[in-house]
Design a protein around this nucleic acid. Structure first.
Lengths: 110, 110
DNA sequence: ATTTAATATTGCAATATTACGATAATAAGT
DNA sequence: ACTTATTATCGTAATATTGCAATATTAAAT
């Protein structure tokens, strides 16, 4: 096999899983964090910031873009990438909700 | 290739990536959410809640356990799994921080 | 001791991911 | 038109993930 059985889960579950999967690689976390360090969004040099070859970085950027975690605008002969706050907020809310539910619950085991 | 170059990234980046990767499958999100619905941690029937065969569920549980997202105690002839609040809070904090940094920054593009 | 119930492990096939060299595409500068 | 700079795509090799049948393990119950 190798393909996930996405049809059997809810849309929300798949949505969170897709976002989490896209962030499930240190290079993509590093890209996200680099995009945070710059005031305006960055045009170029993401490749120089990472210990990976240009095609590999391009591929990671594509995956972040597929997950809608970053947006890209053509800017001359380079591309201007920046974080999509909306999707980050989805992750933030998701884990806030779980965390809140857990702390009000006070599990009586483990 | 196929193996991630984890050495070139910071410990924190790898930590978040590992947690995100572990949650990057709808079945594992579903498991997490199921563990939330029960007051006390669950002993058994996780398999019945998912549209997957028992060995597959066992494997997903193992991955959540490897990422330290769930804890398991032997309880008679079954296992008592429950969520590890600490790791969830790491994810919560991480996305809260990014979200806060983004909203105070007010990006002037995209 | 045998059966039953629940979870784990093994082995394997199908597919996905990661990484990069080579090459293409695009647009600015000369 | 030609070069240069930047990003994307193609092709391919190595490895990882997903899923399940078969089997093993473990402990309670009879």
């Amino acid at each position: 096999m190798g393909a996930s059985k996405t049809d059997h889960f809810t849309d929300k579950q798949n949505e969170i899983a897709i976002l989490a999967k896209a962030l499930g690689h240190p290079a993509r976390i590093a890209i996200l964090e680099y995009l945070m360090t710059v005031d305006t969004c960055i045009c170029g040099d993401i490749v120089n910031e990472l210990p990976l070859a240009q095609p590999t970085v391009s591929q990671h950027l594509k995956e972040l873009k597929n997950a809608n975690l970053i947006k890209g605008n053509i800017e001359g002969n380079s591309i201007c990438y920046c974080i999509n706050e909306i999707e980050i907020d989805k992750m933030k809310s998701y884990f806030e909700n779980i965390s809140n539910a857990l702390s009000t619950k006070k599990l009586n085991c483990c």
